[in-house]
Amino acid sequence: MPKKKEKNFKKEIEATREEVKLKIEDMKASFKENISKIKDENKKISSEKIITIIQALNTKFTGQLSVKIDQIENVLVGIESRISKADTNGIDTSLAKAEVLKAKEAITIARDAINTQTSKIYTIGAVDESTLRSEMKKLRDSFGADIKTLNTKIKAAHTAVKNTATTLAKVPKVDDDSTNKVEDNTINNNQ
C-alpha cells in the first residue's frame, strides 16, 4: 500500500514537473518584458540568471526531498511489518500503532508540500532601475523561506517516524521472533 502511494506520488510529481517546464518558458518570456525598462544589459543578464538559478534550485531541492520522504516512508513500512509480527505473537502494540497514524499523516503533509513547492514559479512583476534589486531580493528571500518551510515538514515526518520506531522499541519482547519458533519446535517434538 505505501509503495502504491509512493508510485502515485512519483507520477503526480512527474506530471507537475512537466507542467512547470512549460510554465517556466512562458514565465521567461514575460520576465524579459518585465525587465525591459532596465537599460544596463549586465543587470538584465544577472536578473535572468537569478530567475534561472532559483528555478533550478527548486527542482533540485524538491527532488532531493522527494527521495528523503521515500526513504522515511520505507522505514515506516518496516516498522509496520515489525508491528504486524509482534501482533501475531500476541504483543500489545497499540501505542506504536497510534504513532504510525501520526507518522503517516506527517508524511502525507510532507508529500503534499513537496508537490506544491514543485509547481511554484518564481518571477517578479514589471520593474525599473530603482526597484530591480529590491524585487529580486524579495524573490530570493521568498524562495529561501519556502524551502526552509518545506524542510521543516520533511523533518517533521522524519521525527514522527523516529518517534514511532522509539515507541515500538520500548515494547517488551517486540524483537523476539523466537517465541513462535520455540512453540513450533515443541509441537514438532511432541509429534
Binding site: 522515511i72 520505507n74 522505514v75 518496516g78 516498522i79 515489525r82 522524519h158 517516524v161 523516529k162 520506531a165 522509539t166 515500538l168 522499541a169 517486540v174 524483537d175
Partner: peptide, 9 residues
C-alpha cells in the same frame, strides 16, 4: 529489528 529500524531512520 527495532534497533535496525532506529538505525535506518
Amino acid at each position: 529489528t527495532t534497533q535496525e529500524l532506529n538505525t535506518s531512520i
